[in-house]
Amino acid sequence: MRDFLYYSLMLLLGIAWYMYGQRLLRKGHRDENDELTKGPLGPFGLVMTAVITCCLLFALLRAAIRREISCLGKACHGQLYTLAENAGDYWSNMFFLLWMVLGLGYAIYVTLRIWFRN
């Protein structure tokens, strides 16, 4: 039951994040107050988000190749989940990393799309 709740909340968060990005993309060059439409990230935030996304993507690819991933929580610091022994925890952490990479990548996409409008 806890896993179902976790994954459904992650899905709802993803849907909300997607709808927020689409709402920003549907706006014109200016909003209702005649100010330029701003993206979800500023210049410094874009660089930091890109660095974090690249690090998470590297960790995701590394875990997929090695078939082992370290635990992502504070309670299990240093614990290593392998695909052979802990398949459920392995896929749970892989899903979380993938979800973070997709969410942050979408924020970068929306920001760049708003900045480089014609």
Rank of each mutant, 00 (worst) to 15 (best):
P40M: 09
G21T: 08
A87I: 14
K38E: 08
G14R: 08
F116M: 02
T37E: 09
M100I: 13
M48P: 00
R67A: 13
G21S: 09
D31I: 01
T37F: 04
T82L: 07
F58E: 07
V51D: 03
L72S: 14
T82K: 12
L72T: 08
A59W: 14
S8G: 03
P43R: 02
G39K: 07
R2G: 15
H77W: 15
A59F: 07
Y20K: 11
Y6A: 03
F4N: 14
L104D: 12
G39Q: 07
R30K: 05
Y20C: 04
L102P: 04
V47N: 07
M19I: 10
I108Q: 07
T111C: 00
L5N: 04
D89T: 05
N93Q: 13
I114F: 07
D31R: 00
M48C: 00
T82G: 10
Y90W: 05
G45W: 00
E32K: 08
I52P: 03
L104H: 08
E32Y: 01
L5Y: 13
L61N: 05
N86H: 15
L61I: 12
A59G: 05
R23P: 02
F116W: 10
G88Y: 07
N86D: 15
G28V: 01
N86V: 06
L60C: 05
W99P: 00
A16R: 04
R26V: 08
Q22K: 09
F44S: 01
L57G: 15
L104R: 03
G39E: 10
C71T: 04
E85M: 10
C55E: 04
F4L: 14
I108M: 07
E68P: 03
A107S: 13
C71W: 02
S92H: 13
M100Q: 10
T53D: 11
Y7E: 07
F4G: 14
L72V: 14
F96T: 15
Q22M: 11
L36S: 00
K38P: 00
D31Q: 01
